[in-house]
Design a protein around this nucleic acid. Structure first.
Lengths: 123, 123
DNA sequence: CCGTTAATTAACTGATCTGTTAAATATGCG
DNA sequence: CGCATATTTAACAGATCAGTTAATTAACGG
C-alpha cells in the first residue's frame, strides 16, 4: 500500500492521459465531457482518471447543475517539484549553496526573457 | 503502452522503495547488497527495482568483479523537474513574466525559507 | 576445480491498473 | 412527471506490478 502523498502524485503523473488532462486544465476548468473529447477512451475511463487525479490532490471538482467542473490544483505539483529540487545539484552544474547565495544577493540580471527564476525561492 | 520517457520516470519515482534507493545513491555509488540492506524485501526484489530505475535512465550500472555498482543519473530527474516547471505559475504566486521582469529590474529580495519537511522516505 | 559471494533470472502469486459495456444516479426542463 | 444529458458505479477482463522462493550465472580466491 503506497498511500504516501508523493507516491500518489507520481503515479498519477505516470499516465500520459492524465498528464494530458492536466495540460488541458492548465488552460482553465473543464467538464468531464470536454476533458474526454480529445481521447479515444470511454467516458468512464476518463472519469476514473479524474478520480485518480483528485485522490492525488492534483484537481478539485465542483458541481454546476449536471456538469462537474475540474480545476487544476497546484500543491501536489509543487510538492513533486520540491522533491526534484533535492536532486538539482546532480544536473545543474551551476547549482550550489554558494552559487544560490550569490544569485540571491546579487540578482544577476538576465538578458533572456525566459522567466526562469528559481533562484529566489529555493535555497 | 506508456513507454514514453516521462511515464517511465514518473512510475519509477512512484514507488517509495525506489525513491529511497535514489536517496541512498545521492550519497554515492553502492552495490545491490548495500542498497538492499535497509529494506525488509528480498534481494531479487531490489534487483528488479534497480532494473526499473535503469530502464527509466535514473541509474547506470557498472561491474567491478562480482559487484555491480549503481550510480545516480541526473538527466531524467531534470526532465521531470522541467515538466513540473511548466506548472510553476500555478503554485508560485510570485511567478509570472511580469513579476519575473519586475524582480529582475527592481531586485526585490525574498528570504522566505521553508523547512525540509519530507525527509523520511522509508516505508 | 571447488566453494563462496554477488547478483540475476525463472516461475509463480496476489494486488492493482486501465480499459470495456451496462446499469445507476443526478440534474434541468418541457 | 418523464425524458434528455452528464457523470459515476458495477462488474468484468487482460496487463502490469511487487513480492516470494528456487535455480542460475558471474567472478574471485584457495
Amino acid at each position: 500500500m503506497s498511500t504516501d502523498r508523493l507516491s500518489l502524485i507520481f503515479s498519477a503523473l505516470a499516465d500520459p492521459t492524465r498528464r494530458a488532462i492536466l495540460a488541458r486544465l492548465a488552460e482553465g476548468e473543464a467538464t468531464v465531457n470536454q476533458l474526454a473529447e480529445p481521447f479515444d477512451i470511454s467516458l468512464p475511463a476518463v472519469s476514473r482518471h479524474l478520480k485518480v487525479l483528485e485522490t492525488a490532490g492534483l484537481i478539485t471538482r465542483s458541481r454546476n447543475a449536471q456538469w462537474r467542473s475540474s480545476k487544476l490544483e497546484a500543491a501536489p505539483l509543487r510538492e513533486a517539484a520540491e522533491y526534484m529540487d533535492k536532486y538539482r545539484r546532480f544536473w545543474d552544474v551551476s547549482f550550489s549553496r554558494l552559487d544560490a547565495h550569490l544569485r540571491t544577493i546579487q540578482q544577476v540580471p538576465k538578458n533572456q526573457e525566459s522567466g526562469n527564476e528559481h533562484a529566489t525561492e529555493h535555497h
